[in-house]
């Protein structure tokens, strides 16, 4: 899916949150978005998802102008958005069900998808009985199980609440799922290493009002493995990313109190 954001701006009353954001993604591209806290990344994702309206500018997907929420885009939030009253399997099946898949077919699909990420034994657990990492994994499977057409995946700090080890593991699972069924991903994160490790391309945003200040293409071939995390190449990229973010930051004297 080709996403095109052109001249997107958003302000709440007199507060400008986003100012003239433009970028495009290619089909099945994994794009990470990094930027200082409060630069409007979440607002931008909400506008793309159709939960909020832009003040000006437009969002289009494969040439279609988007205005309201639809099942061609799927958001994963920082907090768990699993349905608490449904078991793991029922949560996974929810999207398939509303695509009109028969119950037998979707059950098979859900079970094999859960087995593939090691959640097979937790089929009948309710979300509150799962650990935070498992819950995130279920949510990711619930999103990536949807194919033909695969919805645009919008992730807002999706792994933000996980510990470092679980996070690394989950990143690997996401890469695997993404390679098995490629789709366009917008991946908002604070974690620069995560951005370098997961993405094909990184978009750097400025402090509020947010706009695109730089783009970085990540050259590492896939599949990437954890050796890459500590490699010099990745650390050099991470350093560059950090410098780009730092350069965009206003001087201490100019900054208004947060």
């Amino acid at each position: 899916m080709q996403l095109r954001i052109s001249h997107l701006s958003k302000s709440f009353q007199a507060n400008a949150i986003l100012s003239d954001v433009s970028f495009e993604t290619n089909d099945t591209e994994f794009v990470a978005i990094v930027g200082p806290s409060g630069c409007g990344k979440t607002t931008m994702l909400s506008i793309i998802a159709g939960f909020e309206n832009a003040t000006s500018g437009s969002v289009s997907l494969d040439g279609r102008l988007l205005s309201s929420a639809g099942s061609d885009r799927l958001m994963i939030f920082q907090d768990s958005a699993l349905f608490p009253h449904l078991t793991t399997r029922e949560n996974i099946e929810f999207g398939l069900k509303h695509k009109g898949m028969t119950s037998h077919h979707r059950r098979q699909l859900a079970c094999s998808a859960l087995d593939a990420v090691g959640l097979g034994p937790f089929l009948h657990y309710f979300p509150f009985q799962l650990s935070g990492g498992m819950r995130k994994l279920v949510e990711i499977v619930r999103a990536t199980i949807l194919t033909n057409p695969a919805p645009l995946l919008l992730c807002d700090e999706a792994l933000g609440q996980l510990d470092a080890l679980t996070r690394a593991h989950t990143q690997d699972v996401i890469q695997r799922l993404w390679m098995e069924s490629p789709r366009t991903v917008l991946w908002v994160t604070h974690d620069l290493e995560e951005a370098c490790y997961c993405a094909d391309r990184i978009i750097v945003m400025s402090p509020r009002p947010g706009t695109v200040t730089a783009e970085l293409t990540i050259p590492f071939p896939r599949p990437r493995d954890s050796m890459l995390r500590t490699s010099v190449e990745l650390q050099v990229l991470r350093r560059r990313l950090f410098d780009l973010l730092d350069a965009a930051e206003p001087d201490e004297s100019e900054r208004r109190p947060a």
Partner: peptide, 16 residues
Amino acid sequence: PLMVRAAQCLGASRSA
């Protein structure tokens, strides 16, 4: 509200 948004994204109609 995340429940409502998640259901919307997953294709549930208003009545669903």
